[in-house]
Design a protein around this nucleic acid. Structure first.
Length: 415
DNA sequence: TCTGGGGTCCTAGGACCC
DNA sequence: TCTGGGGTCCTAGGACCC
């Protein structure tokens, strides 16, 4: 038995924690570079502001309805998320953090008759301690818990248990296909053609047909909806790829600026890399112009390292060399990014490769010193000079709220 | 003027091998 | 006129998730 906990309108709710004056007002949160709408409060949803719409298309409408607009503040959301997960882990240690605002809990040891009350307790605690509302869905498989969570969010009380067979059937009968976890627009359309319209139809369809048309994913999904658990609780796995990319705040035309940018992104990515105790064997660097304009240009270059590495400076060198290969003068670049690929475990490498010690010795101490300094004194206290420059191409965030919980200088003032 | 970022998994098809 | 069978590995692209 699984429970899925999902924070309601997470980013918008985070913004409200330290701004109680915004209670009842529509709030939207924008993506990086103030591009698209990525979160909406309930009031904003009621104004029919679509998810994912480019902000400039709806700016006037928002102004007219006095919508409060925030740039995204990931330090804040990340910190609140960490606190939510800590509370959950106090109730049930077996927790799988699925995303910044969602987690599965193993409910198999909770007696059936206590499940609902236990869920209420969790919900009330998070509300009381953090001011964040959550929805909790309970079901015999992860996919069913997801379905239940969808219903829970629409309920006043925020909790829904789908495990009773009759309730399950009734719920699935009206449950739209593309709301099911793992079925997107494309697959839903495919199923419609086959005369399958809701969760119940899908569940009852001939397994052979589903397997044939949707492959193993479909087969697994169908089992999950039938209460046969195929997806278990998972441990945190190290990432297989680490990507860092960002659109620019303005158009970029000079190669030096592109190199500054990828140096900065590489710095971020390699911090993540060392944080999960991995080494990278290759880096891909890509640059692109505005994809909504004519003559859209994009290209990437890859560098393979002689030995797996975690060394920021070495990786930045490779990244800037890639930019040299890619750069075409005269174009207006809109975005650049890097991907660390073929990640491998550092411990494994040290144990299996005789010369590993040698190849890592030079950088290991330096990297860990840099990480420690940056951890203690703040990000980018010490960094590669390649990052230096005007940096005025950096993304826009014209309306970011203070980092209330992670930066002493941005604490909430109480007058 | 303005259009996000970061992931995973699966599949089909090509290159290559014996 | 006729042109096998079985396998691996890699890559690009699709689909999906939040």
């Amino acid at each position: 038995m699984y429970a899925l906990i999902d924070c309601n309108n997470f980013y918008a709710s985070c913004e409200r924690i330290f701004r109680p004056d915004l209670e009842g007002r529509p709030i939207v949160v924008l993506s990086n570079n103030d591009g698209c709408i990525v979160a909406r409060s309930r009031e904003a949803k009621e104004l029919d502001i679509p998810m994912g719409i480019p902000f400039f298309k709806i700016k006037e409408y928002c102004a007219k309805h006095r919508v409060v607009v925030f740039s995204s503040n990931y330090q804040l959301y990340g910190d609140i998320s960490r606190r939510v997960m800590n509370i959950l882990a106090q109730f049930i240690p077996d927790i799988e953090i699925y995303s910044i605002d969602e987690a599965f809990l193993d409910f198999s040891k909770i007696p059936a008759e206590e499940r609902i009350n236990f869920a209420y307790q969790i919900r009330d605690t998070i509300k009381k301690w953090l001011g964040i509302s959550v929805g909790i869905g309970i079901g015999p498989t992860k996919t069913l818990a997801k379905v239940a969570n969808n219903i829970a969010k629409k309920n006043e009380n925020g909790v829904f248990d789908i495990s009773d067979p009759q309730i399950m059937e009734k719920t699935l009968r009206r449950f739209a296909l593309d709301e099911i976890w793992g079925i997107g627009r494309r697959t839903a359309a495919k199923l419609h053609v086959m005369g399958i319209y809701d969760g119940y139809d899908f569940r009852k369809s001939p397994p052979k047909l589903i397997r044939q048309k949707l492959g193993v994913m479909g087969e697994r999904l169908q089992n999950e909806l039938n209460g046969i658990s195929c997806l278990k609780m998972e441990d945190v796995k190290p990432r297989r790829n680490i990507l860092s990319s960002k659109s620019f705040g303005r158009k970029v035309t000079r190669i030096e600026e592109l190199q500054e940018a990828v140096a900065l992104y590489t710095t971020r990515a390699t911090e993540k890399l060392r944080n999960q105790n991995s080494l990278t064997k290759s880096i891909s660097v890509f640059i692109l112009t505005n994809r909504f304009e004519e003559n859209y240009y994009r290209d990437y270059a890859t560098h393979n390292f002689a030995n797996p590495t975690e060394n920021t400076l070495e990786i930045i060198n490779a990244a800037t060399a890639c930019i040299k290969k890619l750069f075409k003068p005269g174009l207006k670049y809109k975005k650049a990014g890097i991907i660390l690929m073929d990640l491998t475990s550092k411990n494994e490498y040290l144990q299996t490769d005789l010369l590993a010690q040698n190849s890592l010795a030079k950088s290991a101490k330096l990297m860990s010193a840099i990480d420690q300094i940056n951890q203690k004194h703040g990000k980018l206290t010490i960094f590669s000079a390649t990052v230096l420059g005007s940096n005025d191409w950096y993304m826009k965030a014209s309306n970011r709220s203070p980092r209330y919980t992670t930066d002493w200088k941005e604490l909430r003032n109480v007058n």
